[in-house]
Design a protein around this nucleic acid. Sequence first.
DNA 1: TAATAAATTTAGACTTATCTAAATTTATTA
DNA 2: TAATAAATTTAGATAAGTCTAAATTTATTA
Lengths: 216, 216
Amino acid sequence: MNTLAEENYLKAIYHLSLNGAIASTNQLAAQLNTKASSVTDMLKKLADKELINYTPYQGVNLTATGEKIAINIIRKHRLWEYFLVEKLNFKWDEVHEMAEEMEHISSNALIDRLDKFMGYPKYDPHGDPIPDCNGLFKAHNLRPVSAVDVNESVIICGVRDHSTVFLQYLEKHGLMIGKNIAITDIIEFDHSVILMMDNKKVQISREVANNLLVSI
Amino acid sequence: MNTLAEENYLKAIYHLSLNGAIASTNQLAAQLNTKASSVTDMLKKLADKELINYTPYQGVNLTATGEKIAINIIRKHRLWEYFLVEKLNFKWDEVHEMAEEMEHISSNALIDRLDKFMGYPKYDPHGDPIPDCNGLFKAHNLRPVSAVDVNESVIICGVRDHSTVFLQYLEKHGLMIGKNIAITDIIEFDHSVILMMDNKKVQISREVANNLLVSI
DNA sequence: TAATAAATTTAGACTTATCTAAATTTATTA
DNA sequence: TAATAAATTTAGATAAGTCTAAATTTATTA
Ligand SMILES: [Mn+2]
Ligand SMILES: [Mn+2]
Ligand SMILES: [Mn+2]
Ligand SMILES: [Mn+2]
C-alpha cells in the first residue's frame, strides 16, 4: 500500500502537527534524520497521493486519509512495544527500535489478533495511548512534574522524551509509570524538584521534571 | 546488515541448493518472481559480499557465512509462523505471507526471547524444523505418502507444497500434522491412494500423495 | 524598507533493485 | 560436429529515495 519511507513520513508529520500545528520541512528533516531537500521530494509525493495538505514554503499537515494511516502505524508501534515488554520481558528502554521496524508489518488482521491476545491494552510501556482498531483513543491530558505545585501528590503517567538515556535514568531512580510521587520542594535557584516516592527522597533536575508526565 | 532483497535471495538459494545441489539463475528467477537478468545482478552483489559461490553460467550455492544468514532468516520465519498459529490462532494456511515480512525484523535478541516465550518449539506449523539460536536443527527424514506401501501405518509430519490451496485442501479433509494414517489401497490406474484416518476412508490423488510427507 | 539571514525548493547526481531487448555462452539434437 | 535451442549475461532504462550545491522564497533586522 504505502512504502516504508512514506509510512515513516506520515508518522513524523502526525507527531509534529498535533493540536492543529503545521509541520515544517526542517522539523521533518530533523525528526527523520534526513535532508530538507529529501523531505521536499517526499512531500510532493505524499501530496500527490492526497495524504497530506502541502503548500510550498508553508509546511504540511495530514488529510483525513493520511491521519488514518498514521494512527494505524502508531497503533502497531505501541501494541508491539506492549508485546515486547509484557510478553517478552524487555525493558521499556529497549523496545523502541524494534517497534520502529515492526510497525511496518502490513497485516491488520495480525495486529487485531495481537491486540486481542494481550487483552486490548490501553497504554503502551511509556504511557502513550494505544488507538483501537477503529483508530480511536483518548489522548490523556497530562502535565510535566515541573508544573506541579509543592505538596501535591500525583501519579507518573508518561514521558515526553522517549530516548534510551532518559528512560534508563528514570528506571535507575525507580521513576516508573504508575508510581505515586509527592512533590515536597522546588529549589528556587535551578528549579530542581525534590519529591518523595516509596518513602524515599528523590531529587530531579528541571530538565527531568519537564519530561516526566503526571496525572492532572 | 543485509537488505530485504538480499535476504530473500539468500533464503531462496538456500532452499534451492539443499543436499549439495546448485541453484540456477532461472530457478531463482522463478522462485523470487523476478527476471533472470535481475537475478544475475544480485548474484554479482552477493558474490562480492562473499555470501555465495558464483561462477557465471554455472549457478550458485551459499558460502558458510551466507548459509548462516539464510538459516537465521528461516529460523525467524518458522518461529513467527509458530507464534501466529499457536498464540494468535491463525490457521496454517494463513501465516506464510505474514511470516515472509516478519522474518526480516532484524533483532536477534527479539527472536531469541520469542523462542523462549513459546518454549523452544522444534517444528513449525507445516512440520518444518526450527533452527535453534546456533542455527542447528535436525532435518527430519520424511517420505511422501506416494512412497508408502499398502498396509503400512504412518504419521503425517510435513508438506512438500506450502501453497494456500494445498494446505486448505488438506485441512478440509482433516489431513493435519500429527495424524495417523493407514494406507489401505493404491489404485493402479492413476496411483491415487486410499487411506484410513480416524476410522474414515479418505482418497487422495497421486499429486496430493506426492506432497504429503509422513514418518519413515 | 532595503539588506541580510534563514528556510525551502530546484537541479543534477547517485544507489538499489528492477525491467526489456540484445548479445553471449552452454546444452541439445539432427 | 554443426546447427539450433535454451540458459544466462550484458547493455541501457526506469523508479524510489537519498544526497550536495545552487537558486528561490520568506522572515528578520538594521
Ligand atoms: Mn518505522
Ligand atoms: Mn512507546
Ligand atoms: Mn521475505
Ligand atoms: Mn512453514
